[in-house]
Design a protein around this nucleic acid. Structure first.
Lengths: 255, 255
DNA sequence: CATATACCATGACGTTGCGTCATAGTCAAG
DNA sequence: CTTGACTATGACGCAACGTCATGGTATATG
């Protein structure tokens, strides 16, 4: 019993184009063809197609499916586990996006409007939020408390629209100040004074910031593109400069 | 102050190619260019780029980003909500894949091997599982019990490798039998006898199957491509035929 | 001032899995 | 013999760039 391409399409509920494509990429070549060049599929072809569709339904890319169905020795079990891992990562990625969108909506509720500057804020604030949560999690694990978390919640959620404008203003001032001092060494007295102000600024407006957290924040300014961009836009290299200055500040103030 | 494309790329941490692309699609056109055709970006361009990257980081497609950043009147809030909905769907899709992969791995553990026939089983079993769970959920909602679920778990998880071979064998027999009777009416006595056997087969080997559930199963054989393919491969039109026969069986046996 | 080097431009192909024409040959029925 | 249903190949389109390839430009240096 042989089937023309259209019949196969109807039986398996795929489009003719799909079968054309699978033939073209060598995933499923019909066993026979008529003198006039029509594709003819047989039962074993249909079974192979079922397998293909099965793995497709699990989200495997066609390239892998080809490897899986065409070599019986292929370790399907391992492929499935690996695929599961990949899917878990995909889910994590989507969840990160969801969190980001959620934070943005929140930020909009606070600011009501969305001009250029609040944009930046929302952008940076997301990174900041992640940083804080990360530390809060670690703190929770180490000390079994959620105090830091609770406290920080209190601090950022109480800000009014006016507050935000002021906070953002002061942040810009600090950045500008640092930018004009970039020709000096990060150890420079004036620079260190600004870092101190930055530390207080963070602690006052965002969340109680230990020296350790501040240090981590400095690293993030260099490693997280969201922050780096904001700082480097004021003056290229500013992010790195601030991180170095923070490191020195933290070392100098360590108990 | 103007920036060449390379500088912008470094500041914003994107590739030159990306800026080329954004220029090409009209998402971000530099404000000036040198006599020799070099792109020159100004500060306002950088700010626009920041906005673009912001929305990109939320997972928006560039086409939408273009609309968002280029018309100030655009309702960003609504766009965000809509995007959130889309992300939720994406997460659901990934989770469905994860469940499917999980089921397959389980099925492999049961069968230890993965020949052609167990493949089908895993394929169909997934659909079956979804159907059962759906009904279990509804049952839970209606009667506040999880009995159906628990019972089915007991029923399917107790099968040995031998059992599965037998079950699969009987399933094939029923399908074959129905296929040879397809020229008759679905109301035919022999057909109805086979449907009864099918009902018992399902109840014995899978889960207690009320007439209502059986009827739903019949619908699924036509609407869910995973089942339809399995049945139509035996003989095209078999899925529909079985559904019709099931309907009649259910009507005839209704209390 | 000529050259080496770093930076810029445009063009085009590759990626993933098909959908969607466009053009043209083939087959069975009336 | 015509018509309509079906088939074939070929090629563009989509999303968001990465990655050459080819060639002009700006700048620092010997």
């Amino acid at each position: 019993m042989t089937y023309t391409i259209g019949k196969v399409a109807r039986i398996a509920h795929v489009s003719v184009r799909t079968l054309h494509y699978y033939d073209a990429i060598g995933l499923l070549n019909p066993s026979y063809e008529t003198p006039s060049g029509y594709r003819l599929y047989v039962d074993s072809d249909l079974e192979l197609l079922q397998q293909v569709l099965f793995f497709r339904s699990l989200g495997f890319p066609l390239g892998q499916i080809k490897a899986i169905v065409q070599s019986p020795a292929f370790d399907r079990r391992k492929a499935l586990e690996a695929h599961r891992t990949a899917l878990l990562e995909r889910r994590k990625a989507v969840e990160a996006l969801l969190a980001a969108v959620g934070h943005t909506i929140e930020a909009m509720d606070k600011g009501e409007t969305m001009d250029t500057t609040t944009m930046f804020d929302a952008f940076d604030e997301r990174a900041l939020e992640e940083h804080r949560t990360k530390y809060a999690d670690e703190a929770k694990q180490r000390w079994g408390t959620t105090d830091a978390y609770v406290e920080s919640q209190r601090r950022t959620s109480k800000h009014t629209k006016e507050d935000w404008k002021r906070i953002q203003q002061e942040g810009a001032e600090i950045r500008e100040g640092l930018a004009t001092l970039m020709d000096h060494s990060p150890t420079d007295r004036d620079v260190q004074t600004l870092v101190k102000r930055f530390h207080e600024y963070m602690s006052t407006n965002f969340y109680a910031c230990s020296l350790e957290m501040l240090s981590g924040l400095g690293d993030m300014y260099v490693s997280d593109p969201r922050f780096t961009a904001t700082y480097d836009k004021v003056r290229p290299g500013l992010a790195t400069f601030l991180r170095d200055a923070i490191k020195i500040y933290c070392t100098g103030n360590a108990t």
